[in-house]
Amino acid sequence: MSDHHDLVVPEATEEPIANPGLPEHLPRPTDVDPVAEKRAERQVATLFGLSALFAILTCVAYFAVGKYDAFLGLGASNVALGSGLGLALLSIGAGLIQWSRKLMSDHEIVEMRHPASSSEEERSEAVAAFEQGLEDSGIARRPLIRNSLLGAMGALGLPAIVFLRDLGPLPGDKLQHTVWKKGMRVVQDVDGARIRPSDMQIGQLVNAEPEVFFETNSEGEPVIEGTELLQEKAKAAVILVRMHPDDIKPWKGRENWGVDGILCFSKICTHVGCPISLWEQQTHHLLCPCHQSTFDLADNGKVIFGPAGRHLPQLPLAVDDQGYLVATSDFTEPVGPSYWERG
């Protein structure tokens, strides 16, 4: 300890057990036995040699193994290249560890703890330097410069706030509406096939979409496409299910929302918006795989288990003059998870 450190050293007290000191330094077998030393040297060299061998084997495998060959159900090329390179690297690492443990110098070092704070002298020096700087810049004597600097730094924060506008625009009432409207056909997802009530059997599930997603305009371009399609799909996706009409207990006002036991519900979970179509046809329960919210589709999509706070919105159905299933209106309530303005 240097003597200019002003340390409070506790009074030396008598230890209950005498300090045994450090144990005697014993050499490693490789330090004293030339045979062991030679063996360790060979081990390290062998590991490095193996690494080189694996590197070469990897290069051979690159050319020898076909890109689409299979090995134990895995892609043979990937297995060969991956394990070749991996073993090459691992062998170098293992060789280095063995080298340092067996052969590199074996000094034992004791490092005492130092106090973390600087000395009093150094601290007063630093404070003096800081005060000298204040004096030299004259910041206290020149308020104009000081204040304009503060103003400039404050103004630099303004763009960051203005740029936040890019998070917008505000959604308006978009969350309350979907592309469903009166007369929009309910069609099967993927191929857009229209659905007649007679096509569906009791216990049937159809993952469905509004027909507008499959429509094209006069130039053959889709009516809705790209990002807009994804955004609208995220709200408008539905499932159609057919149950025995006697099993369905519609709420007041919903008696005519189904067609012969065919009901249509939003596919978007009201908890955090996962798409749900895990429907048990015998219990009529619809389970969300994300957080196990469970809705009873025979009972108006009521929540019977899990974290969802609202029942699943139902889409009122009818049959058009060509005999296909259509919606009679948009959803009567917002689909998907709750949000701030909805209360």
């Binding site: 099967q188 191929d191 059997q201 216990g203 049937q204 046809q281 015998q282």
Partner: peptide, 18 residues
Amino acid sequence: TGPQQMPVFSDGVLSPQD
């Protein structure tokens, strides 16, 4: 046929080719 809890996917909607 929709065995047990599995829903039915009838030929009317999900065609035999599908």
